[in-house]
Amino acid sequence: MFRWLAGRGARPSRVAETLTRISPLGWRRARTSLAFLDGLDDREDEALRARAAWLLASKSFSGAQGMVLDDDIMLSIAIQAALPILELDPVLYEGWTEIIVYPGGFLIPRTEVDDSGVVHEYIQEAAGEAWDGGPVILSWEDSCPGMPQAANVVIHEFAHKLDLYGGEADGIPVLDAHPQLRTRQWRGVLTSTFERFERMVTEVEDAIPRDVDPESEEADPWYGSLPLDPYAATDPAEFFAVSSEAFFVDPLPLAKAFPGWYGLLQAYYRQDPLRRLLGPVNVDRL
């Protein structure tokens, strides 16, 4: 109990108990509903199951606005959240205790200071939020199976948690366990790739006709030419989170556009979703 209150992972005995409660049928149903998990081999499948059990045992799940959480919902979220740490130490998800799930999008008060020093307060609708030292908040409508393949709000928010584990959200996760990766190298590739993507977004926005609202669905064909959701151009932290969700669920556009950045993500996560989803033969033909 005190481990949980401190935001530490559950004891191995509790994780083992949780693992036994995940039925083979429930696991298979949850796994097959998430198409981006296709291609996991037997070892990876078992490792993912163990990581999902760790999450279920280590975090409390709470429904908001009348949301009733059943085992299938919690298992689906745990599976998606477990994928980024499939080959990493789950300690990276420690330091906080709760996952809050809303039925749909929720409102977050925001405060921004412009270049003139004027403070602007507004309300923003969100599908997910990861608080530094606090909970992960998710919209089930945006997290449930069947969402567009190129997006994954669960992976996005848990990538923020990986980023925050080492301090401020800056797009640079803790690299101590990766002797082949250096912070200076990571920062250099992140910065150059982020700036290149910013230019790509600007070019797309400049190409949108004046009679088309760039915030409307009518502008989607222009933004669809980008290898990542344009939200990735917000700042380096969002670039890392958006890149991470694309890395796991729709890796081909990312790998083609930014092979160096994809290579760093591959080294950090110790996974290669492109090869897993397309197969070695098809990847070698790219």
Rank of each mutant, 00 (worst) to 15 (best):
D45W: 00
T111A: 15
L252S: 06
T32Y: 13
A78H: 05
L277C: 09
A47Y: 04
P280T: 10
L265M: 13
A241M: 12
M67W: 04
H156D: 08
G171C: 05
L75D: 02
D132Q: 10
V136Y: 01
W54I: 07
L190N: 07
S33L: 06
Q185L: 11
P236H: 01
I79H: 06
Y93C: 06
L55V: 12
F197S: 01
G7Y: 03
A207K: 09
Y93Q: 08
V212T: 09
E157F: 11
E112Y: 09
L88V: 10
P173M: 05
E217K: 11
R210K: 05
A255Q: 05
D45M: 03
E198P: 00
S225G: 08
P259W: 03
G39R: 10
D235C: 11
G166P: 07
D38K: 14
S243K: 05
S244G: 12
M1L: 14
V15P: 06
P173V: 08
V118Q: 11
Y231K: 00
G26V: 02
F2K: 14
R187I: 06
A207V: 00
L190K: 07
R8I: 01
L252W: 04
F2I: 12
I108Q: 13
H160G: 06
V118S: 04
I155W: 09
A246F: 00
E46G: 06
I73N: 00
P253W: 02
T234H: 05
D142T: 03
A159K: 10
R49E: 04
D272N: 15
L92C: 06
A255I: 01
Y122S: 14
G128P: 00
D176C: 04
I137A: 11
L164Y: 09
P214S: 04
W186P: 04
L37G: 05
R184I: 13
A57Y: 05
E87K: 14
R196F: 00
A57W: 03
D229N: 13
A57F: 10
R182W: 10
S143W: 00
A151M: 03
R3M: 12
L254F: 13
T32C: 12
A127S: 13
I73K: 07
A219V: 01
H160W: 09
D176E: 15
M147I: 15
E203R: 13
G39H: 13
T183P: 05
G188V: 06
